[in-house]
């Protein structure tokens, strides 16, 4: 598949898709959005790039390793469950740090960390599927 419009457009669109996906991820706790949707949006940008330029190029250009993304996502998600254990709570209790509120991102807490894990894993899953199908 090779279309001029897509190949020019996608270069500009990828950062936009990424930004938008991060926006969705971090607003997810208070408004529609979240890790699942964010991860999907993030992967769509790269998927379009891969469809246009080939998976191998997408992989090299952005240092993407979908299986590693999955692994990191899972690790972060589990980590967000273990942190409360260290703090003396039960596994996966939500912990919040109330003192500060980062602009745009909101208050830091383990559920946000968990959502980041979901985001990475979903993006990795979708990209892994698309890449392995496209590579053949």
């Amino acid at each position: 598949m090779n279309s001029t419009i897509l190949s020019t457009g996608i270069r500009i669109l990828i950062p936009l898709f990424l930004l938008f996906s991060l926006f969705l991820l971090f607003r997810g706790h208070n408004a529609p959005g979240g890790g699942f949707v964010g991860g999907l949006v993030a992967s769509i940008g790269f998927a379009l790039y891969a469809i246009n330029y080939g998976a191998e190029r997408a992989r090299r250009r952005f240092y993407l390793r979908p299986l590693k993304l999955i692994a990191w996502g899972l690790l972060i998600a589990v980590l967000s469950g273990i942190i409360p254990l260290i703090a003396g709570e039960t596994f996966m209790t939500g912990l919040w740090y109330d003192e500060i509120s980062i602009p745009l991102l909101g208050k830091p807490g383990t559920p946000i960390l968990f959502d980041i894990g979901v985001y990475l894993l979903v993006a990795g899953t979708i990209l892994g599927i698309i890449f392995s199908l496209w590579e053949e």
Partner: peptide, 25 residues
């Protein structure tokens, strides 16, 4: 309890995060 205003997301990442963990696995 969970500092979130999007109740669906709160259920996913906080109240029932164990289930979500299983699902992402």
């Amino acid at each position: 309890l969970a500092m979130g205003k999007n109740v669906v997301n709160v259920i996913l990442v906080d109240f029932r995060s164990m289930d979500t963990l299983g699902e992402i696995v």
